[in-house]
Nucleic acid binder design. Sequence first.
DNA 1: ATAGGGTTAG
Length: 469
Amino acid sequence: MRKTEVNPDNYTFACVLRACMEKSDSRGLRVVHGGVVVSGLEPDMTTSSALVNAYAKLGQVEEACNVFNKIAQPDLVLCNSMVTAYGHGGFWDKSLEMFREMLKMGIHIDGYTLVGLLSGFADPSLLEICQGIHGLCLKAGFDYNGYVGSSLVSMYSRCGCLYSGYRVFSSLSQVDLVIWSSLITGFSQSRDYEMAMLLFKEMNMKGVKGDAILTASVLAACAKFVVVQPGKEIHGYVFRHGLVLNVMVTSALIDMYSKCGFAHLGLRVFETASEKSVVVYNSVITGLGSHGLASQAFGIFEEMLFKRLIPDQCTFSALLNTCSHAELVKEGCDLFKRMEVEFGIAARTEHYVYMVKLLGMAGELGKAYDLIQKMPNPPDSGVLGALLSCCVVHGNLELGKIVSSQLSQLEPEKTAYGVMLSNICANDGKWDDVRKLRDDMVGIGLKKSPGLSRVGDGNVPYSNCNRDI
DNA sequence: ATAGGGTTAG
């Protein structure tokens, strides 16, 4: 088009911007934005709206805001885009402010406005505001709107109030797949796995067929709760409903089998899959690695490189996890270096956790401590906690004291760290030190609540189960 | 030209 006489107009740019958004192409987005600026076209609602959406989707809310501010009299669609941009960025307060601004300007809100606004609320502390918005949805007559309905259901589940979500669900006159999906996913994410499975069955009985997103989500619930039987049934469901080719379903299946202890079944799903994404590879590497099958996991990584797939941070999490399970210290250190040098991926907190576990469990506590000192950001409780457990395993009281004092500064009310430290003394028979440490905890008003574990009997699924048993 | 549910990672 650029090589012909035909010039792009605002709508052309909006279409191309949408493509950049769908492809998550930040560079392309900047280039097209540049094209809009130099095209000589007046900044208009259509392109601005597309720009706001694209920047927000790629996490650049500030840039979205800049675009928005250049328009003197934004219309409904442009305002909706901005409300949604703030909502998706997690800036619920700014989203709400924008919403109020719209009302002040006399703009009549619609379903898009409410969906955008609702998407920003994700914390139990915001429940009252959420209820207010819910009230507004009812008063403005949007209770028939399926988009608003599903947003309300997932908003309530994000705020930890799932039974309010269930009431919204029950009040809807038309229930489609996405609304079912919001509800079922909500229950499985709130750890109410049994309810999630029950609703999934009920949905199927009503003749609604699950799609890839919902099926992957239900499989994730099976993985989280370590129940292979329903997982297998859903594997059959996947075949019957033609979902085998979907990479999301494939990775969820691999993960489900691996988490339930059947790494070989996960591997079989992997081998028979025709479509394989980076996530599919990551899932199978994680599964094999967690079962100590390091050489197979490395083999799959090689295959991935051979197929010219680009490994991501998660791939290296999986690989480092593999090394720590198989006590492969040298391989782990090499991979940690390769990740940055060869693949340009900066080490994140979880990568440091794996490295600490790898070095620490091998008895290289000094090296683990040195590595932590070199972290770009100060270590959080996850990294330090990993190091403290290694101190317990190797009976290193000296380092254990240093680490646990750093931990108690980060999380003063957590009692487990003091107990771990006292266990080092107990293993060494130093009962006077044990008593002193325990007395100190009581002295500052800390009380260790006893641990509780529950085991399923093989037929009855675990409820509230602890996977470490 | 704008909406809703989302697989892998401590």
